[in-house]
Simulated scan of single mutants.
Amino acid sequence: MSYCKGLVADIDGTLTLSRSVYELSLEALAALRRAKNSGLKVALATANGLDYALALSRYLGIDSVIAENGCIIYYDGKTYRLCKEIDKQKVIETALSTGLVKESEQNRCREFDLAFYPVSEPGLAVESLKSLLGEKYAVEYSGYAIHVRPRGVDKGVGLAFICRLWGIPCNLVAVVGDSEVDVPMLKLGWGIAVGNADDRAKEAARLTVEESSGLGFAEAVDLILRGIACID
């Protein structure tokens, strides 16, 4: 019997076959179904734009989404915006001026968190963008893209908001993730890192499973349903 009341799953690198592809793991999808059927509240948490996240959540039968790294929350047909408006065009022009990134096709439908693909060393691009954009913006690399958003909101803030909507303490919500952008929600909830997660995610989590990405998520769900998670 699970001690957890909710489950929040990152998408890229957690529900996918690996941290370098977008194809979803069938084992992960089956695990999501098991979690839902057990009575757990389930949400997706992603750096992706809301349109992308809602398309996936619709076909999974999930009504709770944390999108744009916490900037936008969707729950039970309602959308909540937690971030302040930004000058999208200025941020995009500044980022592209470095010559170190390419713009994500998602930016046309993003509101707050803008995504860019590094063309060489991601760390160099991140540091360059931090220097140019200043303290007003958070700049992070997810393993898929570099994300720029207003500072002060992250997946942890999004998780706290979802927990309030659900009426569930965050320590009773299992969170599964793989990357640096998942760290705030891994710390706030009962964090589980997949086996191939980056070091910061593993350090933030209470537990790291052996399997990687989608298979690791399925392993995590099995542990949750066996009562291993959401306990001190």
Rank of each mutant, 00 (worst) to 15 (best):
A28T: 03
E23F: 02
S25E: 09
G6I: 13
R34G: 09
S20W: 06
V8G: 11
T16Q: 01
A9F: 11
L17C: 09
L24V: 01
K36I: 13
L26R: 15
L32M: 07
R33L: 07
L24C: 04
S18Y: 04
L17T: 08
R19S: 12
S18M: 10
I11K: 03
L7C: 04
R34E: 14
Y22A: 06
A31S: 13
S20K: 09
G6Q: 07
R34M: 13
L24R: 03
R19Y: 08
R34K: 15
A35R: 02
I11M: 05
R19Q: 11
L15W: 02
I11A: 05
Y22V: 02
G6W: 03
K36A: 05
E27N: 14
R34I: 07
A9P: 02
S25R: 02
R34Y: 06
R34S: 11
S18A: 06
A28Q: 13
G6Y: 02
K36P: 06
T16Y: 00
L29S: 02
L29R: 10
A35K: 01
L26G: 10
A28N: 08
L29D: 08
V21R: 03
R34H: 11
V21A: 04
V21T: 12
V8M: 07
S20N: 12
I11C: 08
E23A: 03
E27M: 13
